[in-house]
């Protein structure tokens, strides 16, 4: 893992080498504001917390994170630089991990720039700042989950647009897998254990728990294993698809 920081630094710098990073951050900040104040009725609720802010993150990320993840591998394959990267003396884990971490840290930077929300709510009332902190952790973990899925699908598709759409679809499935919409399709024929397993895959239930201030080890483990599993899948897909 010695060369992982080298890959990480290059990737992170490449976000800021193009206007993409700044456009992404601006869109994220504007939308998260709009969602909080208009859809989330931040003021009308009259409560000093940020649940109006965090509630919409799974949906906001559904479109923004795939946009961030789509270029991770698809661009390397399209421009042929993957041949350069894969013939340098780095392991798959260093390449996959370095790229993922750069995207994740970038998402973290965007998330940190929403700090005026925290300032606002502290100015208006006396919120539970511990719950806000876990909310941020949960949101960042959620972004990591989306990004790991996006990383794998970006390696699968050579075309960035296809990578974007695939990622949005798979992330959507992970969001709604706790909903009757999906569960009803299983409950008719599948054993209860499978229905429970599908329901437990849902991002939403995990994220809701964390964003309300409950930092359960099982939820953390869920996100960690989800990210690692998708990254392992990324490494496999990169190996299979790199030469196409």
């Amino acid at each position: 893992m010695k060369q992982l920081p080298v890959v990480f630094r290059r990737e992170l710098a490449s976000y800021f080498a193009t206007p993409l990073a700044y456009v992404f951050i601006v869109i994220f900040l504007v939308l998260s504001g709009v969602f909080t104040f208009y859809l989330g009725s931040f003021f009308e609720r009259g409560q000093a917390d940020l649940s109006a802010f965090f509630t919409f993150h799974p949906w906001l990320y559904l479109f923004l994170v795939p946009a961030l993840a789509m270029r991770l591998w698809a661009e390397e394959r399209k421009s042929g630089t993957i041949e350069l990267l894969m013939t340098l003396p780095i392991t798959r884990a260093e390449a996959v991990g370095g790229k993922f971490l750069a995207a994740w840290v970038f998402a973290g930077i965007a998330l940190l720039l929403t700090f005026p929300m925290v300032v606002t709510v502290n100015y208006l009332g006396e919120p539970d700042n511990g719950a806000i902190l876990t909310g941020y952790i949960g949101s960042w973990l959620l972004a990591g989950g989306y990004l790991a899925i996006g990383s794998c699908l970006s390696a699968l598709a050579k075309n960035q647009v296809i990578a974007f759409i695939l990622t949005a679809c798979v992330c959507f499935l992970f969001i709604v897998s706790g909903f009757p919409l999906v569960l009803d399709a299983f409950s008719g024929w599948a054993p209860q254990a499978l229905v429970d397993a599908v329901a437990s895959l849902s991002f939403l239930t995990r994220f809701d728990a964390i964003s309300k201030g409950v930092l359960d080890a099982r939820d953390l483990l869920y996100f960690a294993s989800l990210i690692l599993a998708w990254l392992a899948a990324t490494a496999v897909v990169v190996d299979l698809k790199k030469a196409d």
């Binding site: 290059r10 710098a13 490449s14 421009s79 042929g80 630089t81 350069l84 013939t87």
Partner: peptide, 13 residues
């Protein structure tokens, strides 16, 4: 040391 066909490089760097 390897120069792949077409000499791909990271263009934004």
């Amino acid at each position: 040391g390897y120069l792949p066909e077409g000499a791909p490089c990271y263009g934004d760097m």
